[in-house]
C-alpha cells in the first residue's frame, strides 16, 4: 500500500472541502482498502466520511430514501424494505458475507469496482486501471466476464447485486458537492465502458453520494432477486435477475426486469418488460419473454454459457415472482 494522508471529516462541509482538494472518500473500506493494498488504488489523501449523518432509512408513502452510509446489513433487515422492497433485501443478503455486510455501505456498494482479475493485477494490461494498455481479459481468462454492454476496450462484469435491483426499480442517486445537489438515475450514474472504461460513473471530483431514493409501488412489493453462482454463498453472480411485477385481475400492469453478472453495468431488460405488460401471467409467457433476456449478447471464448444462463435465470425468477400457472 502506498502512503497517504488520513483525514477524518467531522462534518459534511469538511468532507466536501477535502474531497474538492482531491481526497478519496472512504466509508466501509471493503473495496477501497482491498484495492489500495493491491496498489490498484493509490490515493494521496483518504477522507473518512463515516462521521457524516447519512444513516437514515426513511420510508415515505411513495418512496424509500436511504442514506449513503447505511450498512448493507441494516438496509436488508429493515422491516419496510423486507415487506415493500423484498428485491432489495434479497439482493443485499445474497451479497458478500455477513461480516462484509456489517461494514459495507450503500454508497460504497454502487461505487464498488470490478472483480476482473486483470483489473486487480497491476502487472496486467487493463484499460480500466491504466487507459491505453489494452484488455487482457478479451484474449485471456474470461469465464466470469460480461456478454452484454461490452466494448473492445473492456469486458468486466459489474459486480454489485444491489445495483441490479436499484436499476430495475428506477432508483435515483442523490449527490452533493460544493456547487449544489444533483439527482441522477442509477442506470445513468453507472456507465458502460465504451471507449473510456476508466470512467465508471458520473460522480464529479469531490462530489459525495448522500443517499439513494427508490420509488415504491404495487410492483416493488411483489419483487425478488435470484442469484446463480459457482458456489451457494459468498460468491459473485454468474447470472442474476431482479424482477418486480404488478399483477391485478389476472393482468400484468407493470413489470421490471434487470440482470446482473452478465453485463458491464446493471442491465435493464426493457424489451422483456414490454412483452410482459398487459398479458396474463403464466409459464408460456415467462418462456417467451425470457427468450429475449440476452438479446444483443456478444459472448467471449470463455463465457458463452452465460447467454443461456441469463435467459433461464430470468425465466425462473419470473415464474417465482409471477406464479408458474
Amino acid at each position: 500500500m502506498y502512503p497517504f494522508t488520513f483525514i477524518k471529516a467531522p462534518t459534511e462541509s469538511a468532507a466536501l472541502a477535502a474531497g474538492a482538494q482531491g481526497g478519496k472518500y472512504i466509508a466501509g473500506g471493503t473495496t477501497l482498502v482491498d484495492l489500495m493494498r493491491e496498489t490498484v488504488e493509490r490515493p494521496g489523501k483518504v477522507v473518512d466520511i463515516t462521521a457524516l449523518p447519512y444513516r437514515e432509512i426513511e420510508s415515505g408513502p411513495s418512496a424509500l430514501r436511504v442514506g449513503a452510509l447505511v450498512r448493507m446489513a441494516d438496509l436488508a433487515a429493515h422491516p419496510v424494505v423486507r415487506s415493500r422492497f423484498p428485491v432489495i433485501s434479497q439482493a443485499l443478503e445474497l451479497s458478500a458475507s455477513a461480516q462484509l455486510r456489517n461494514m459495507a455501505t450503500i454508497g460504497g456498494n454502487i461505487m464498488q469496482r470490478p472483480r476482473c482479475l486483470y483489473f486487480r493485477d497491476v502487472t496486467a494490461a487493463c484499460n480500466r486501471r491504466a487507459p491505453g494498455t489494452g484488455c487482457a481479459a478479451i484474449g485471456g481468462e474470461n469465464r466470469g466476464h460480461a456478454v452484454l454492454g461490452t466494448s473492445d476496450q473492456c469486458v468486466a462484469t459489474h459486480p454489485s447485486d444491489l445495483a441490479v435491483a436499484l436499476v430495475a426499480l428506477d432508483a435515483v442517486v442523490l449527490l452533493r458537492s460544493r456547487d449544489g445537489d444533483r439527482r441522477i438515475p442509477v442506470a445513468e450514474f453507472i456507465r458502460r465502458p465504451g471507449t473510456t472504461p476508466d470512467k465508471e460513473h458520473d460522480l464529479r471530483p469531490g462530489e459525495l453520494i448522500v443517499g439513494i431514493e427508490v420509488p415504491g409501488g404495487a410492483h416493488t412489493a411483489r419483487s425478488g432477486y435470484l442469484k446463480v453462482r459457482d458456489r451457494q454463498s459468498y460468491e459473485f453472480a454468474l447470472a442474476s435477475a431482479a424482477v418486480a411485477l404488478d399483477i391485478r385481475d389476472g393482468v400484468i400492469r407493470d413489470a421490471r426486469v434487470a440482470v446482473g453478472g452478465v453485463a458491464t453495468v446493471p442491465w435493464r431488460l426493457s424489451d422483456v418488460e414490454r412483452l410482459l405488460i398487459g398479458k396474463a401471467p403464466g409459464a408460456e409467457l415467462w418462456a417467451a419473454a425470457s427468450a429475449h433476456a440476452a438479446d444483443g449478447a456478444k459472448p467471449l471464448h470463455g463465457n458463452g454459457f452465460k447467454v443461456e444462463l441469463a435467459k433461464r435465470t430470468v425465466e425462473r425468477q419470473l415464474a417465482s415472482i409471477g406464479g408458474a400457472a
Binding site: 477524518k8 471493503t30 482491498d34 473518512d48 446489513a73 458475507s97 461480516q99 462484509l100 456489517n102 461494514m103
Partner: peptide, 28 residues
Amino acid sequence: DQGACGACTVLLDGRRINSCLTLAVMHD
C-alpha cells in the same frame, strides 16, 4: 487479507466484521 476467508473476524462495537479490510485509524 482480502475479505475472502473470515479468519480475521472480530466484533466491532458488538458486530462481526473482517478486521483486514478496515483501517485502524478509522476506529478511534
